[in-house]
Write a protein that binds this DNA or RNA. Structure first.
Lengths: 233, 233
DNA sequence: AATTATATTATGTGATCACAATTTTAGAAT
DNA sequence: ATTCTAAAATTGTGATCACATAATATAATT
């Protein structure tokens, strides 16, 4: 058996899920989202199965599910790989984030009440706390939790899976790119979003969400150079 | 063995695909899209496997993939069902179609050249031919082919899987709903879209696509009543 | 006759296995 | 040293099986 680089794969206890395949899926998903699995390296079913101490079956199902969310690529030779996306695609993913998330926020607004706003403030504080700790990964996850909490209030859920897919596609590249950037500041427009919600101002909410996403993109200024470096490595 | 209602499942030869699971997926997908599988009836792995003359494995993978595209629901008791979507959700799916497809069309425009326009005209004629034959299913598929051909010209492909997912979610309900409508006229704005493309007018193209989708929605006027009928049956 | 309790059948899930295709390694030839 | 070739190891795929759970049918009770 060959020695392999070990990326920690842990989430919650396997027993907490009624299906093992669901647990495997969630574990791999967060692992990809957080950039623990580097773009380009091939994932093998047996390898993951052994690492997670399950049979190959749940791994296969999880990988196919991730493939249909564009989180992994299945090449012609049937190898599974976390793709390294091009700068063009990266920017397009951000365009779609703006398109879908402003839409989702506006539709969710009528369903957000006082108690939800308290929760949003708490979630926003969690974001700030993570970033001031310098923890990029948990900050990013907390940021997603903030956004998700808004959109989820809409009882008609069609956007959310698509938005999740966008986040998932952006995750790996964003993570490796951020590690190349020596220093950056993480702004967010969560306060403005909360204000807009409290004043029930749909347009202001859209603006806040859009600005928040744009700020997120602006961190990746020299993205083309980063991409070239990553591709050659 | 109990007698079961038989819906024809056929697409292309199983051998034409390098993977059986891919063939199973495509077969089930078109079957759902065309409304051959009625919303609400439970799909069993073994049942489909027997009907398609494959083992349960490729069926399982196909069903999970369809579930992650929201084409089927997996209930708490792990039954797989084509969902009957609510009128609100139906309308929201159309909103998202407009949002994503106008965006996709605009981004694709710079990549559409003369030869593509000839192909588009041919595809449009195929749509008209199907509808004048009164063949709703092939007309709908031809219509999708027309739209897909436009969006696909963009080398950066991120929208297309999402749009396909929207079409897939709309398919079953649209099909059963159409069968309840005694007579309707199928307008389309494909000529206007082609004109806009030839004049390289992005805004006009957006308008044509949006109008085309809205026309499609307008067919379902009494959608709430149809939904009530379907739910009780 | 309706309802509850029990037994039986179906069904989804995860594991294991054989086989073909791919990848990797090792060796040979230039 | 480099390139090409053959052998070995690895890997994805599809099939089959055991087991637990859910759905259905049957029997019993009121």
């Amino acid at each position: 058996m060959k020695e392999k680089k070990s990326y920690s794969l842990s989430l919650a206890n396997k027993k907490d899920f009624n299906n093992i395949n669901e647990w495997v899926y969630q574990t791999l998903r967060t692992s990809i989202m957080c950039g623990e699995i580097r773009p380009g390296v091939a994932l093998t079913i047996r390898g993951l199965a052994e690492k997670l101490d399950v049979s190959s079956m749940p791994v296969r199902e999880a990988l196919r599910r991730l493939a249909s969310e564009s989180a992994v690529d299945i090449t012609d030779s049937r190898r599974v790989v976390v793709p390294l996306i091009s700068p063009d695609k990266f920017k397009e993913l951000f365009s779609l984030r703006i398109l879908l998330e402003t839409h989702a926020a506006e539709l969710a607004l009528p369903y957000i009440s006082g108690s939800h706003i308290e929760e949003l403030k708490a979630l926003d504080e969690a974001v700030d706390a993570s970033y001031s700790d310098g923890n990029i990964v948990s900050g990013s996850l907390a940021n997603q939790a903030f956004h998700r909490y808004i959109y989820k209030q809409n009882p008609v859920q069609v956007c959310m899976p698509m938005i999740e897919s966008l986040w998932l596609q952006l995750g790996p590249f964003a993570r490796v790119a951020l590690s190349k950037i020596e220093k950056y500041y993480e702004y967010d427009r969560h306060k403005e979003a909360i204000d807009a919600i409290q004043q029930r101002d749909a347009f202001a909410l859209r603006r806040a969400i859009e600005a928040d996403i744009r700020d997120g993109l602006s961190v990746f200024k020299n993205i083309d150079k980063i991409y070239q470096d990553l591709k050659s490595s």
